[in-house]
Design a protein around this nucleic acid. Structure first.
Length: 423
RNA sequence: GGAGAGUUGGCAGAGUGGUAAUGCACCGGACUCGAAAUCCGGCGAACCGCCUUAUAAGCGGCGCGCAGGUUCAAAUCCUGUACUCUCCUCCA
């Protein structure tokens, strides 16, 4: 959530910034009006309550059964009717205010490109030489099916579209990739390894910003109301919800491998083949809790932690800054890391690294106590490190050879018991 | 799935209708060369509103897991619900 005081004090700035994210300025206007109205009635209600509390104390001091007591009770009863109706109207205003507030996206950072969609994204750096082939490179699903290491048809039979069976060397490759990632994050980059719950409650989904606005993107179990996580960001960031951390403990780094479940509503027809867009996929996630003054520095570091993996796997990539219109709901600034996919000759998103500032911390009530004793919201960051299925796809395509076999990157070979080529 | 117990301030822990004890911790002061001990005082998270340029202070609201209800008045009574623990049942 955006700091309510920021909206109250700088409505024009908020309006202008949110407009770059596609928010209708009239929403902010309505918010400001309701906020004023809410505080006005709240003050009135509180003053009445104050009076009432004083009378109630008098009743207790006198004998409630005495004539004086009875008279006071009558008086308070009359007040109550008044307070109740005023409080009811105040609550109505507050509810509407809340309804708007929880649906406003985060304020974009000052230094990100302004634009309506991904066409305004800006490349910030590029790494690796694009591979050249003396044959026509195949798509990863073709390689996978030919080698009997990926099976989409049977997954469709058993589950539906956008599911896959990994088989044999495919399953082993997936396992090698995520073990490699986790080891790098934990042994070299300072992350604590977590295995979180994969089903979470609605409060948790609210905390990171998926609820209430994006319910249709996830799978919720009807009988109990719990939701299958769309990303490990959800359980990792909410780990400290409703807690006050010590300043000395920050920053905190978490990493986790989890399956991610997404309904992919609205993406019908896109990426219908291959591992790119699945209803269920593995992802290694990184989450950070940081002091406010350090969060942008931590974002740079986080993004490097993700691209490190690609460099060690010898996969060409570039990093882009998402424009205001393309940046996710909770984020103020996002770098996408995109890996080269030779068959389609495009860069595809393989990681998304975001600084959410205090936006999620406000929703999930994650704070820290400074050394001077005061309490403030932490900043939360998250990034994929990396999407495992897409990494496998990138390895298959980038390392394919004319005979249909696939070279295993050196860094990965120890994780495959020294296997150098998948046939 | 069945039965029971519990949830109060940073921690421990009292409070069964009259407006949140007490201890430890913490903060300030006294004593002391200094510290400990002792004594005195303060402080009970967080949140919201008013006041303020802003902060602090001050005033007020809220506040005993959460949400409702009864009542002039609810930690206390009633209903629902979440979580934790114990026992039974079942189970990887």
């Amino acid at each position: 959530m955006i700091n309510p005081k920021t909206i109250r004090k700088q409505p024009d700035m908020v309006k202008a910034k949110l407009e770059t994210r596609g928010v209708d300025p009239s929403e902010v206007d309505e918010y400001v009006t309701l906020d004023q109205q809410n505080r006005d009635t709240l003050t009135k209600v509180e003053n009445l309550k104050k009076e009432k509390n004083q009378l109630t104390k008098k009743i207790n001091a006198a004998d409630p059964k005495s004539e004086e007591g009875q008279a006071l009770i009558k008086q308070v009863k009359e007040m109550n009717a008044n307070i109740d109706s005023m409080a009811a109207s105040q609550k109505e205003t507050a509810d509407r205010l809340h309804y708007i507030a929880v649906r406003l996206p985060n304020l974009p950072a000052d230094d990100i490109p302004v634009g309506p969609d991904e066409d305004s994204n800006v490349e910030v750096r590029k790494w690796g030489d694009l591979p050249e082939y003396d044959f026509k490179p195949k798509a990863h699903w073709e390689i996978g099916e030919n080698s009997d290491i990926l099976d989409f048809d049977r997954a469709a039979k058993v589950s539906g579209a956008r599911f896959v069976y990994y088989k044999n060397a495919g399953a082993k490759l997936e396992r090698a990739v995520y073990n490699f990632m986790l080891d790098l994050h934990t042994e070299e980059q300072g992350y604590q390894e977590i295995i979180p719950p994969y089903l979470v409650n609605s409060k948790t989904m609210f905390g990171t910003g998926q609820f209430p606005k994006f319910k249709e993107d996830v799978y919720t179990v009807e009988s109990t109301g719990v939701t299958l996580i769309p990303t490990a960001e959800v359980p990792l960031t909410n780990y400290y919800s409703n807690e006050i951390l010590d300043e000395a403990d920050l920053p905190i780094y978490f990493t986790a491998l989890t399956p991610c479940f997404r309904s992919e509503a609205g993406s019908a027809g896109r990426d219908t083949r291959g591992l790119i867009r699945m209803h269920q996929f593995n992802k290694v996630e990184m989450v950070k809790y940081s002091k406010p003054e350090d969060s942008y520095k931590e974002l740079e570091k986080l993004t490097r932690n993700a691209t490190d993996i690609l460099e060690r796997l010898e996969l060409p990539y570039h990093v882009i800054t998402l424009s205001t219109g393309d940046t996710g709901f909770s984020s103020a600034k996002t770098y996408d890391v995109e890996v080269w996919m030779p068959e389609q000759k495009v860069y595809r998103e393989i990681s998304s690294c975001s600084n959410c500032l205090d936006f999620q911390a406000r929703r999930a009530m994650i704070r820290y106590r400074k050394e001077d004793g005061s309490v403030d919201y932490v900043h939360t960051l998250n990034g994929s490190g990396l999407a495992v299925g897409r990494t496998v796809a990138a390895i298959l395509e980038n390392n394919q050879q004319a005979d249909g076999s696939v070279r295993v990157p050196k860094a990965l070979q120890p994780y495959l018991r020294g296997v150098e080529v998948i046939k």
